[in-house]
Design a protein around this nucleic acid. Structure first.
Lengths: 97, 97
DNA sequence: GTATCATTTAGACAGTTGTCTAAATGTCAT
DNA sequence: ATGACATTTAGACAACTGTCTAAATGATAC
């Protein structure tokens, strides 16, 4: 039976994730995304968190750079989705120590 | 049989840990400590990492504030020890999402 | 095109942080 | 007490970051 390929993180990526998680607002956004079955749009996030669109955009960029989410344009809207594989790879990494 | 009491982290603590982990140097120090059987002194850490004593002291304070390590004076020296229970509570917390 | 709505970019600002040097404190041996 | 060594504190500085406002871009409907 084929072994499931598991993402491993280099130090650079791990650092990016840690930084993304360090801001509580960003962590809350990520958690909110993780709790969804499918994608969310900015609109939902803007209703949920008291920040301006500009600030949200900034945080999404950080999360995306850390590979914790993906975003996809759908017409006017941006569909944002939690990337669980990265998250799980990060947890495995932390479990090593 | 008695159930083992497991530490749970409030949001404030979790934030403190995330912040402590966000700096790569601090993460490296923590990992180094976690890899030891017992305590380490500042001397060992200063040989291992190219930072001044003042900077090390600063980082140890952060890690201690996050409850990730404990320190204890032993004469001239400071014995530093990784606090695994906090670490494990943090991992359990992250696993929730 | 124009209007409208969603998102991004640019720029600014205040607050935080990692690091250092220099000086202070603590602890032990002589 | 003096000296030597370990650690901490104080203060400074540059770099980074979260946030905002204002303006720009993208996308759709009319």
């Amino acid at each position: 039976m084929p072994k499931a390929k598991q993402l491993t993180l280099d130090a650079r990526t791990r650092r990016g994730i840690a930084k993304a998680l360090a801001d509580p607002r960003r962590f809350d956004i990520l958690r909110h995304l993780a709790a969804q079955e499918s994608c969310l749009g900015c609109g939902d996030l803007l209703e949920t968190f008291p920040i301006t669109p500009a600030t949200l955009s900034h945080h999404l960029k950080e999360l995306e750079a850390a590979n914790l989410i993906t975003t996809e344009r759908e017409g006017k809207f941006l569909r944002v989705q939690f990337l669980r594989p990265t998250w799980e790879a990060y947890l495995r990494e932390l479990q090593k120590l």
